[in-house]
Design a binder for these strands. Structure first.
Lengths: 352, 352
DNA sequence: CTGAAAGCGCTAACAC
DNA sequence: GTGTTAGCGCTTTCAG
């Protein structure tokens, strides 16, 4: 059983206690026994605490090495009460808007020594709640939530119990909490005003489902721009609903071929824009287009967009989260990030 | 202190034990005391175990509600030895290739009641190892890894200790482990053969850094196609390296303007393709292009690609992982997914 | 500088 | 049906 032989195959020299449920892993106790020291000394070495002789430390390190010991953070968490992990609940990680956002949150978490648990709500309020509560049961230190639902009172006990929470992209429903979002209203208004400045008056708006805050805000921006220009709008120019290709395609087709055909379309988000671009590509009469959200390759396709910075959204939210975790006692705030209109051609097409 | 008043504001009725580090949260013990039952009975109710009278159950549920109790999974994990979470280490969640992959892994995890912890290695082997070991310390049940490094012996003790591990996109280095990947060699060969079939003989290859397995495989495919066609290739047609825009732009420009200018380019991945498309857009002489990886809007730009299914990669890997966790004793395998050539125009341009 | 004992909140094993 | 006890692997406290 003696293995001072210095073999490289660490795994084989691990102790074989039969009933250990962690796949038979060595514990600090095992390390202590092997190094001939007390449990607490091992703890000190593992955590880099002072007060250990270099010689003792070496012996402990050797034992750790030989046994292939790795501290069990579950036990640590139980004792310390902090998991050094945060949760991020978003709509769909497969959406190109959320990848950079998640990555930005991860970077901030990493800088604070925390891991990130991701979850996709699929825009389903029940699933959002289920995920959030699962994360709370894991005792994540904090939560970044892109809300799917519009009632977050279920989070009140958690927040009261100390789970720092920041909402992103859309405000929380029925509770007072931090939120970081883009200026959807202003961005949409600017985009539509841009189309108006290029001579359009019959402008369509295709947006997401009305229960989604950003959809409503962008629609408000559209209406404001139209009103500012003194344009009376036809309700046949406005379409809200699911952003799947079928619905959007139908809506866009109806708008450009209907009785009062639009000469321009404002697309409410990246998914809408992509589908509208496809529809317009198959259409002979040129129709102008401005889309909310930037898209990869939009420059090559000459798509004018109102860009929001997904990474900045995530970064700002995460930084605020960690400021709370570090003890800052700031009142819930609403942080709004500016959008940027990027003209690339499609928004500058004159009315037919 | 009695609060049978049935107030809705759950948070306020929670007990105020002063020194609890979980932000003062009620435990099962508190619930038991309040419901006037034993600890184990609460545990039974919380976990839906049988053997509790409906009446007792109701009283316990009420106490849970009133206190805002939520089971502490950290303690549960410590006891049970399973965290019901898996880790996914990839290169960069902001890359559109990985979003869908991560989402697919998440869906499988969800179906098995597990959460997903994501981490980005930024293609840095040290960071990959750091992340993987942090996940192991958290005692994730399993690991899906898109390797950045080429030596994974550091994982041997973990795997031996029972951490199920599946590699994706690239094989593990120096250890024998499951891997799920796309047929990079075959895909690249098909893509280049497609260009050759359209009359090209001077074909460039721009790929990722040579330490990345897929880069090498795709280059091999390129060489194989060229050799099959009896084309002797000039080394000035081949360029491997970082896939940042600067390097790729320089490489592409050199190839199309050099002494032996290519009439077609095969792009080794999505990032390369995007940059090459931009370069070719500014170039007067038409140059054919086939890219590895599909890209959003590639259909509108008419980019011919060799598509791999990122979601299928993730799903397959995760399913294999959970099969292991469910006790299947399968030997490490290599699963290769087919790629699909999608002609859209850019690959069918004849040589100038 | 070092170690023994207590206990984090839960579940497993066994009483009653 | 229900409760009691022990203990998961670690950190905290406090004594040597």
């Amino acid at each position: 059983m003696d293995d001072r032989t210095g073999q490289r195959t660490v795994a084989e020299t691990a102790p074989r206690r039969p009933e250990n449920r962690y796949g038979n892993r060595p514990t600090m106790k095992d390390v202590a026994a092997r190094a001939g020291v007390g449990l607490k000394t091992v703890s000190r070495v593992v955590n880099g605490e002072p007060g250990v002789t270099p010689d003792t430390e070496r012996r402990v390190q050797e034992a750790i090495e030989a046994l292939g010991f790795r501290r069990n953070d579950s036990a640590r968490v139980l004792r310390k009460g902090r998991t050094a992990s945060i949760g991020l609940v978003l709509e769909d990680l497969a959406d190109p808007f959320y990848g950079p956002l998640s990555r930005a949150v991860e970077e901030v978490a990493r800088a604070h020594g925390a891991l990130l648990i991701n979850g996709s709500s699929a825009e389903d309020p029940d699933r959002e709640q289920e995920l959030v509560l699962a994360l709370c049961a894991r005792r994540v230190d904090g939560l970044v939530v892109i809300p799917a639902g519009d009632d977050h009172r279920y989070l009140e006990p958690e927040i009261a119990a100390g789970v720092a929470t920041v909402f992103v992209d859309r405000p929380a429903g029925k509770i007072d909490a931090d939120v970081v979002l883009s200026d959807s209203f202003g961005g949409a208004r600017d985009g539509v005003a841009h189309l108006i400045a290029h001579g359009h008056r019959r402008i369509g708006f295709i947006g997401d489902q009305p229960r989604i805050h950003t959809a409503i805000e962008r629609l408000r921006g559209y209406r404001a721009a139209m009103e500012d220009a003194g344009i009376e709008l036809s309700e046949s120019w406005v379409s809200l609903g699911a952003t799947g290709p079928e619905r959007v395609q139908a809506a866009a087709t109806a708008m450009i071929t209907g009785p009062e055909p639009v000469t321009a379309i404002f697309a409410g988000n990246n998914r809408v824009t992509v589908t509208v671009v496809r529809v317009l590509a198959d259409h002979e009469r040129p129709v102008a287009l401005v889309g909310f959200d930037d898209i990869e390759l939009a420059d090559l396709l000459g798509i004018t967009v109102v860009a929001q910075d997904a990474a900045a959204l995530g970064r700002t939210a995460a930084e605020r989260l960690f400021r709370h975790l570090d003890g800052a006692e700031e009142a819930p705030a609403r942080i709004e990030l500016r959008t940027a209109l990027i003209p690339r051609g499609s928004g500058e097409i004159p009315p037919a």
